[in-house]
């Protein structure tokens, strides 16, 4: 990337990409030599067994984790070389664990998503007002505006956090396991919402646990195992019984999801295979 292509050039299929990434927490190396690019306007889902490095990769793409080697590029620039607020206007992240300040209302929490658009001297503007209202409407939390966030249900709370990330108005939105700790109906609710956001033109990148949900919602799937990317592409092309066995050590049958036509993984009953070396 020495001579970065001009913005919007047809060569750039991807605004967000990582090249030769080595990712590590202190001395513990999680992944080496990862190359990944997020297709523009895709709903990319990163999937893989526990500890395969999928959240780590997402954190690196969101500049939460500095790669040991290699670099993440956003619009042709090394992401860490850009001012943090500048990045925050293009790329949003919903982290796995956030803190709800004691006693904060829904509207106030969503409003905090406007931070990258504000300055010391120019604080709350009409544009901020509009973005917050928009975000709350899209996530269906307008009615909850005056409620204290602590008192909401898990599903409602996750929608509020999504609204906060939406108020940031970034064309790219990264989500780290947005459905964890939610029951099935709230999982679907959050994923449907993500699909809606994707349809309005946003690039969405999510780490998910559930392979069937990933197949259903993703337009682009990144499958990881042991810190490496094993397969990439449309779920219908990528997900095979062979892949599932290789990645998750699970024998299964794959049928068509009767609702969407996407692959549906049906684990084989009773007999579980031990690792095929």
């Amino acid at each position: 990337m020495a001579a970065a292509p001009a913005k919007g050039s047809p060569l750039m299929a991807s605004r967000l990409s990582g090249t030769s990434l080595t990712l590590a927490y202190d001395q513990r190396v999680v992944a080496t030599d990862l190359n990944v690019s997020i297709p523009d306007e895709s709903f990319t889902v990163i999937i893989g067994p526990n500890a395969c490095g999928k959240s780590t990769l997402l954190r690196a793409l969101a500049r939460m984790l500095k790669p040991k080697t290699g670099a993440v590029h956003l619009d042709g620039s090394v992401i860490t070389s850009l001012p943090s607020k500048e990045v925050a206007r293009r790329l949003g992240l919903l982290p796995q664990s956030s803190i709800v300040p004691d006693g904060i209302t829904v509207a106030d929490l969503v409003a905090r998503g406007r931070y990258p658009h504000q300055r010391l001297m120019r604080q709350w503007s009409k544009a901020d007002e509009k973005a917050v209202a928009e975000a709350m409407r899209a996530t269906d939390v307008t009615e909850l505006g005056d409620r204290i966030v602590d008192e909401l249900s898990g599903g409602q709370r996750q929608r509020v956090w999504l609204a906060m990330a939406l108020a940031q108005e970034t064309p790219i939105l990264l989500l780290d396991e947005p459905t964890t700790f939610l029951d099935i109906s709230h999982q679907i609710e959050v994923l449907d919402l993500c699909a809606d956001l994707h349809e309005t033109g946003r690039t969405m990148v999510a780490v998910l646990h559930d392979l069937n949900q990933a197949c259903r919602y993703a337009t682009h799937l990144i499958v990881m195992r042991g810190g490496a990317i094993v397969a990439e592409g449309e779920p219908g092309d990528v997900v095979t019984p062979e892949l599932v066995r290789q990645v998750f050590e699970l024998r299964c049958e794959i049928i068509q999801d009767p609702q969407t036509g996407t692959p549906l993984i049906v684990p084989e009953a009773r007999r579980r295979v031990t690792a095929p070396a």
């Binding site: 992240l93 982290p95 796995q96 956030s98 300040p101 905090r112 990258p116």
Partner: peptide, 9 residues
């Protein structure tokens, strides 16, 4: 909102 959320913003 947390270190990650703050940094992301």
């Amino acid at each position: 909102l947390g270190d990650d959320a703050g940094k992301a913003l």
